[in-house]
Amino acid sequence: MVETTLSASIHPVDELLTPPLSLRQLVWRRFRRHTMALFGVVVLILLFTYAFGGALFLTESYANQTETGVRLQGPSAVHPFGTDTVGRDILARTIYGGQISLLIGLTAVLIETGFGILIGAFAGYYGGVVDSVLMRITEAMLNIPQLFLLIVMAKFFSGKLPNITLLGRTFSGSVVVIIGIIGLTSWMYLARIVRAEFLSLKENEFVLAARAIGTPRREIIFQHILPNSIAPIVVSATLGVANAILSEAYISFLGLGVQPPTATWGNMLDGAYNYIDTAPWLWVFPGTLIVLTVLSINFLGDGLRDALDPRSRVA
């Protein structure tokens, strides 16, 4: 604040001559100042390169190949990250596990955002009975901690889907289940944010104008109001990716998530604590990758919040 008033008073002419910044430039300016967010972006790019570029060097069948003769071997030249309890190469598994973990994080958030926007938008726009019914459902979902719901739902949907073949690769059907249940158990906060945005935005003149010229409701909701509330949605969705990756890690760690042989960073840790004193490499590598990913996404989300939505900052 002090800085801007100072520079404005020293260079009043500059202020008049420079063309006004576009929204994108403004956002980028604010984002650029957030060093940790830039650090997060760089680390995320490296992690994506690791998970998707690494696949060029090691095949998935190698990642899933068991060789009980070399089980629980420490890091060596052949297996740089060591081998797991059935002799699979941990380096290769962190590469393919990373793909699945990142995929789950991104797609679960798509579902979460879709649900959150729909429920929040309808509740906020229509108000009245629709609002109270939808918000009671939201409250009911919030009443039970997410991990408990995830466990119950993982059991409910377990073993229902066959393996899926996509792009020449076979995935355990549990990947889809996990994506679905993480999306279904995490939309509540987003719905509340969207609802609050809609409640205040729908009172604006532009909505009244749109309604006056007979714009259909669907268009008012999705083309007039929604774009105006995109900033908090983007921030919340970004942080949601981190949360989804953590949720996958927790549920897979408990053995109820993605089923082997499909690797994820989470299920690689399942049972690792049985070998805590003999084979620390079982959990160190996938665990570190999870922490790095989640940390970077949280930094990125924090930077986005500062850049897109400076007023909402709480801490």
Binding site: L246, L269, Y273, I276, G287, T288, V291, V294
Partner: peptide
């Protein structure tokens, strides 16, 4: 940002 099992292990 840390899953609790990581800090625990």
């Amino acid at each position: 940002s840390m899953p609790i099992f990581f800090i625990a292990l």
